[in-house]
Design a protein around this nucleic acid. Structure first.
Lengths: 233, 233
DNA sequence: TCAAAACGTGTTATTATGACACAATTTTAA
DNA sequence: TTAAAATTGTGTCATAATAACACGTTTTGA
């Protein structure tokens, strides 16, 4: 009986993660200012290696936890990058995924310990290796998914207003949306529950604070219909 | 300067491929009746290991070529499976993807050399390891993609009729579609070119043979709008 | 030649969408 | 105290997309 495959090539497996956040105005990325080799001093995604005794999914959660101090974060695998020379140090195959978090809920200490900073998506610096390609692909995937599934909520606090949600979608798609049509479409999904409260931070008319109907959210998640209308890709 | 990472765990990387075909009536999978260890005699997906000097994408093409004799096949990565014990022989991380081919265009010799057979998707046998999970995920992804992108054509011969295309979509979604609405929707995409020929195999009224407008297909591919209406997921 | 099967096209009611207008709320400055 | 400015909530209307449905045509073979 075999105990090992007769194949010579065992390869390092990395995980790289694109963490999206939303500050109310624009999309942001949680990026690492590297204080370690290789490429010390440059910007990169948060990443890590897959350990011998660790499931791939567990590793993804570990890496996200080390970066944010959060558990049960929403994330999706995007693609596995496996070009021979993508990492100049040594051949490394990287499983890439994106995560969505509430920008105000994560641990400052965790971010500090990784030397991580929120950087505007639009003004992001060059990243090491193929990490810029990963970010581009992640944004594409986020747009694709958010058009059909209500994942945008993952980027917002528990209570939010419809105008805030609209600003988020405008940031994701980098395009203005009609306020009235957007509101109608969102409310027609019946995913929002009126909390009875209003946004006291507003300097003008205070908008209604909603929360997500978690039960419906789970149920409807895979029943994809255009979640955002009034928008052409 | 580093020449290698200081991390101990290098792991075998496999690729596993779900090959879909369509025989005019139902979806089929090209599966391997294993005449090699491990799990000799059982059914599995076609797979292989990633070589040291090989890009991941090149490896996927190699594996598909060995199985079908075809190059430039349509395929999409689905997910990377990385549970510790998914392969009982040795820890193996598997990059999983699905491919769509014209069931009549592939090499019989290539299939024979791999001991591969077309098996009805609906009546598929149990597969080794986590391969059944892979197939389930592939079908889900195929449905997701085919609802928004005209990838169904990849499963048909160069010239095909609208009723044939409809049968394909009915097979993918396992649901009947209205003939008149389907035809209207498909023709409204302007992706089909009337070849002037008719399907001579028919025992009744001969349907018009169309071919795909390749240029428009490439252009419109990422402009996702519901390609199949009259259908709820 | 006529019945049966499958194909092509058309109609209509309903719903969804995009474009647009107006009234209500809240703060601030006159 | 009040008016202006900013923002929010809701409504209307014309057009497009969709689902449900009907009819005539082509082809084979009994």
């Amino acid at each position: 009986m075999l105990t090992r495959y007769n194949h010579s090539t065992r390869i390092l497996i990395a995980l790289d993660c694109i963490v999206f956040g939303f500050d109310g105005e624009e999309l942001k990325l949680l990026l690492i200012k590297r204080d370690f080799e290789p490429e010390l001093g440059k910007w990169s995604l948060m990443g890590g290696f897959l350990n011998e005794d660790e499931d791939l999914e567990v590793a993804a959660n570990r890496i996200l936890y080390d970066l944010t101090g959060l558990k049960d974060i929403y994330f999706e695998e995007i693609k596995t990058f496996g070009e021979i020379n993508r990492d100049p140090v040594e051949r490394t195959v990287s499983v890439c995924f994106f995560a969505l978090i509430n920008i105000h809920a994560h641990s400052q200490d965790a971010a500090k310990s990784q030397n991580a900073f929120w950087i505007s998506l639009k003004n992001r610096p060059e990243l090491i290796f193929d990490h810029s390609n990963m970010v581009n692909l992640a944004l594409e995937r986020l747009r694709y998914r958010a058009a059909l599934h209500p994942i945008g909520f993952e980027l917002l606090p528990e209570k939010f207003t419809i105008p805030q949600l609209q600003k988020l979608y405008e940031a994701i798609y980098d395009t203005p949306l009609d306020r009235r049509n957007f509101s109608r479409k969102i409310l027609s999904t019946k995913l929002l529950i009126d909390t009875g409260e209003k946004n006291e931070n507003s300097a003008t008319k205070k908008a209604i604070l909603y929360k997500l109907d978690q039960e419906k959210y789970q149920k409807q998640f895979n029943a994809f219909h255009y979640f955002v209308s009034d928008f052409k890709v």
